[in-house]
Design a protein around this nucleic acid. Structure first.
Lengths: 227, 227
DNA sequence: TGACAATTAAAACAAGTGTTTTAAACGTGT
DNA sequence: ACACGTTTAAAACACTTGTTTTAATTGTCA
């Protein structure tokens, strides 16, 4: 009768193995595409363990996402705090805001060996899936960071109307997620001119592009202005 | 024995109804999430009709995608052709290249009444789904346009290395698709500061942002340059 | 009208899903 | 050593999926 979820301190071997396997498989194939039987087979664990430990498949998804995205968002807020206190009362410059968004994600990719592509695709997937495919609980994990960074951007870009800040922040997220999610597509499409696994370069390009987009005053650019 | 797919000229009522229903449902819920029973019920048609006319579910997906995305890509190429011939031998300016990418999509949203959100979500979905969820045939629909626009951008942005053009084009696509796919999220997140269904404004903001990103030389911007 | 093909309809199929149930094994504290 | 709660194991359940099969119906041309 007692729920196994209540004892959080005790480490169950099979419980962790389930989460590890789920993280890997979710990253590779998406939440819906992966079956509990795949997960439990990968974890070398009985099928019923998932419903025993997590209540349901959705419960497992929430657990996995929280473990992956929680630390990243924490570090994002820390970096933004640091930048804001360094700036005193002044607005933080756009470049630093963007780095506070991107760096923690990139860093967590380099932490563990296998986590590189896992985190990458998982993070990308977590927002490319819409509505019903994505438990609302997971969405809530991002609400706080989104609000904080929106406020910071508004201060850094006072020449933009409030709605424009939201638009551009939206585009920024899209650029980042698509870059993560479809990285292989880029490597393939560029015929090797873009190297795989060059996280350094990716971050550099991403910051350059999104900063340029966020700070843009108008669209006149390159060869002469429009007629 | 004869395959019904061979007679393309004849218009079968139920065949069209299946495609219409599938387009709507795929747009709302994604390719995998929609079952053939949902589609045939919506179309008021027998279940077996799908396999009869399209061979399989994947065959139906290809048909739907081709019908939606084909005309859009054709118009994109036409607009790029026009811009290039207008420019003579000169490079087309970035703003016009971007409009050639975005305008046909926006325009097709305003064509038919119901197609607004349908096309929107469908187009967004067509690239946010990765690998196995997306038949390779559909991906091929975009190969030609991608190559043409990459070449145009390379000419318009000669100061960028080739790899950088690919990176930034990638980010551009990401911004566009995310804007389409997660538009409701933006409306919600902005607390009404961003209005729904304002395609005009969306295009304007998208062009401004992506042009700024594509043309960016460096990331110094806003309040003072980085330390 | 009769025959033959194209189309629609209904039912069944085989496989896979998440979940639940029922037992067995394990570990721990008395 | 015994009993009790926790954890694993195996099977079954109820349901949905895409696909096939089998029949009935329709339409068209000779």
């Amino acid at each position: 009768m007692a729920s196994p979820e209540s004892n959080s301190a005790e480490a169950s071997d099979t419980r962790d193995r389930v989460i590890d396997a789920a993280e890997k498989l979710f990253a590779e194939q998406g939440f819906e595409a992966v079956s509990l039987r795949q997960i439990t087979a990968q974890a070398d664990v009985n099928l019923a363990a998932v419903n025993y430990y997590f209540g349901s498949k959705e419960g497992l998804i929430v657990e996995v996402m929280a473990r992956v995205v929680g630390p990243i968002n924490e570090r994002r807020l820390v970096m933004l705090d640091e930048a804001e206190s360094e700036a005193g009362g002044e607005a933080v410059e756009v470049k630093r805001i963007l780095e506070a968004v991107f760096l923690p994600l990139m860093a967590s990719m380099n932490e563990s060996e296998h986590s590189r592509k896992v985190m990458l695709k998982l993070a990308g997937r977590c927002m490319s899936e819409t509505g019903s495919e994505m438990p609302e609980v997971v969405g809530r994990l991002f609400r706080e960071v989104a609000d904080r960074f929106c406020a910071a951007l508004s201060r850094a870009l006072p020449h933009l109307a409030e709605a424009e800040v939201y638009w551009r922040m939206h585009f920024t997220i899209g650029a980042m997620l698509y870059a993560l999610n479809q990285h292989e597509t880029l490597v393939l499409l560029s015929n090797g001119r873009v190297e795989a696994d060059d996280a350094e370069k990716a971050l550099q390009e991403l910051v350059a592009f999104t900063a340029g987009g966020l700070c843009a005053e108008n669209v006149s650019c390159g060869k002469g202005a429009g007629k």
